[in-house]
């Protein structure tokens, strides 16, 4: 769906930079769900995810003037969210994250699905939770959000080679934890 020019993320950011609270609220509501979901994936805790959304969008409000348009607005905002979430996760012990993840994340598929699929989801979720935040973010940004390699480098503010290396280590760890049997796969745009 194409948005009218005044309603694009770029236009809303520009208006936000001028102090337009209405435009900022519109931007906030557009990104609240996506940023919350991303933060929840990285922190594993809804209360932390909520705080990450607040801190992220407060930063957007403060720094909108500095958005130069070199990256897409969504990449810029996710980059802020990544840094805020990484800091929030750093404040928490990893063990407590595991407990919360199992309690609060819904199963991947509804109850009538095969037990095997549910087991896969639980196993994958648990394995992902063991990854350091920068590796977890790389996996999620690649496989859930579908960001390009170069965009992930922008979001996580590191060279493309570092993104590849993080993914390399994440793959090795996930393979060690999960083995190769994860059910049928599909190449999206190969």
């Amino acid at each position: 769906m194409t948005r009218p020019p005044e309603d694009t993320d770029t236009a809303l950011l520009a208006a936000t930079a001028r102090g337009d609270r209405t435009a900022f609220e519109r931007l906030f509501r557009r990104y609240h769900g996506p940023v919350f979901g991303f933060a929840l994936r990285l922190t594993g805790r809804p209360d932390l995810a909520d705080e990450v959304v607040g801190d992220t969008m407060m930063t957007v409000w403060r720094k909108a003037e500095g958005f130069e348009g070199r990256a897409k607005p969504s990449t810029w905002i996710f980059g802020i969210a990544y840094r805020v979430a990484a800091k929030a996760r750093g404040r928490r012990a990893k063990d407590s994250l595991h407990d919360e993840l199992d309690d609060q994340f819904p199963a991947a598929r509804s109850g009538t699905e095969a037990m095997e699929a549910v087991f896969d989801a639980k196993a994958v979720r648990a394995a992902l939770a063991t990854l350091p935040v920068e590796q977890r973010a790389t996996v999620e940004l690649t496989y859930f959000y579908g960001y390009r390699l170069t965009e992930i480098a922008e979001i996580t503010d590191c060279p493309v080679g570092t993104v590849k290396t993080r993914m390399f280590h994440a793959r090795a760890k996930l393979r060690a934890l999960l083995g190769g049997d994860l059910g049928p796969g599909e190449v999206r745009h190969g």
């Binding site: 609220e25 906030f28 509501r29 609240h32 769900g33 919350f36 979901g37 929840l40 994936r41 809804p46 909520d50 959304v53 607040g54 609060q104 994340f105 819904p106 991947a108 598929r109 896969d120 989801a121 994958v124 979720r125 992902l128 996996v139 999620e140 690649t142 496989y143 859930f144 793959r171 996930l174 393979r175 999960l178 190769g180 994860l182 059910g183 049928p184 796969g185 599909e186 190449v187 999206r188």
Partner: peptide, 27 residues
């Protein structure tokens, strides 16, 4: 093939979405 399977699993993992009231409170 292995990564395609992993991608499918990760993409299928859902997280709770905030409702409209939570969004209002956050705003």
């Amino acid at each position: 093939e292995r990564q395609a399977r992993l991608a499918g699993c990760v993409a299928a993992l859902e997280v709770p979405e905030p409702d409209a009231a939570a969004e209002d409170r956050a705003w």
